[in-house]
Design a binder for these strands. Structure first.
Lengths: 208, 208
DNA sequence: CTCTTCATGGTACCGCCGTATCAACACCGT
DNA sequence: ACGGTGTTGATACGGCGGTACCATGAAGAG
């Protein structure tokens, strides 16, 4: 048999080419030929690993969310070992804002996919229900633990505040994308609400 | 000369056909032939009143926002004569949620246009800066007057709260579109924040 | 060694879409 | 009445995009 190639890795390469070109020209404008050229492979190869454009797009969405999840995880790790709830939440929210090229591409493409899923039944709408739900649950949990630790206002409704924070971050992210708003403005608004929710100044456990 | 036709009215008819078909099949999937068929006219006529597809799309966006503005105005008028600031704000925010067919279409298409404008320089990005700015300014003014009237928490930052409310309404609107969230949930979150901002129960000026 | 199977390239087909062209028809001013 | 302009229709054209088909290396199994 011929040189055995890791299919999954190839698919990932092609998917990243899709993400790059879609980030530049828009998801609606991307064709199989563009993806092939961007990935430096032949059109036939794209067809070989993904039988149809629909499957390519589907895989691309999966890859996009995976990359983003990993990125958020890296941000959290970079926030230091055992950061307090507020630092964790702040890192989470700020990571979702389109401040650099990668997050800008993510925000743009994720939004494009979401809008697409409304009318094109082919693209599963499930990711756009499950992912936000998971984010809401995670943030709700963080807020609740902050309340339990006496760091956040115990009278606040954790779930409602979690939904609110995520919703604000999302819309302001789009605002940044279209040039309506600067990142500083978005950060200021988010910090304002965190200040409202977190009563006490936060101290990581002192080292001795 | 032939039967004189009101061009502006014709354009409006065609634009509404565009909005209907785009609301059903997605903005990306709409072609001139679809618009012509939906409007019950020939393809040539669409070309006659709009020289290119780009101009058709541009006009469609304008028409969409005009219709929405009128709709919001009607909602406000329906809220009764001289409603208090809170009722006004609530009507404003709830009108933007995709709860019926028309608002659903508006939300979907406006989002589609916004995403498009990020990558396609042809579609002016200006509307997506000016309209949100105007909404923010209007809502900020309403909040400030509520504060001046002693109805809302005077310590709140009116502009930040206005931005927050609009941002929450927008993202939750998309959440409703994709089926992640029900309208009741969105309304509950918005009301929660209004309850936080408005200290006093509101009374319209009693009639004598 | 050769045969099978995986991997890859080149290219053709078909349909759709935006645009342009040719033509007919209707009405109004003069 | 009649010409001319505003309006409408049918159709053709060029391009592009997704998919399908054929062919050719490349390498491990027997």
């Amino acid at each position: 048999m011929p040189k055995r190639v890791d299919h999954e890795e190839r698919r990932a390469q092609i998917a990243e080419a899709l993400i790059r070109v879609a980030g530049r020209r828009g998801l609606h404008a991307v064709g199989m030929r563009d993806v092939a050229a961007e990935a430096g492979v032949s059109l036939r190869l794209v067809q070989y690993y993904f039988q149809s454009k629909e499957k390519l797009l589907f895989y691309g969405l999966q890859h996009l969310t995976d990359r983003f999840t990993a990125r958020v995880g890296a941000r959290l790790a970079a926030a230091g070992p055992d950061p307090g709830p507020r630092a964790t939440i702040e890192a989470l929210l700020l990571a979702s804002l389109p401040t650099d090229e990668e997050s800008r591409t993510f925000h743009l493409l994720y939004s494009s996919y979401a809008i697409l899923s409304v009318t094109d039944g082919a693209l599963a709408a499930q990711p756009f229900i499950d992912n936000p739900d998971a984010a809401e649950n995670a943030l709700t949990g963080l807020l609740e633990s902050a309340q339990a630790a006496g760091l956040a206002d115990p009278g606040a409704d954790a779930r409602i505040e979690a939904i609110s924070l995520l919703a604000m971050a999302a819309t302001m992210g789009t605002g940044i994308l279209v040039g309506q708003r600067g990142p500083e403005s978005a950060v200021a608004v988010l910090r304002h609400h965190l200040d409202r929710l977190f009563t006490t100044a936060e101290r990581p456990a002192p080292p001795a």
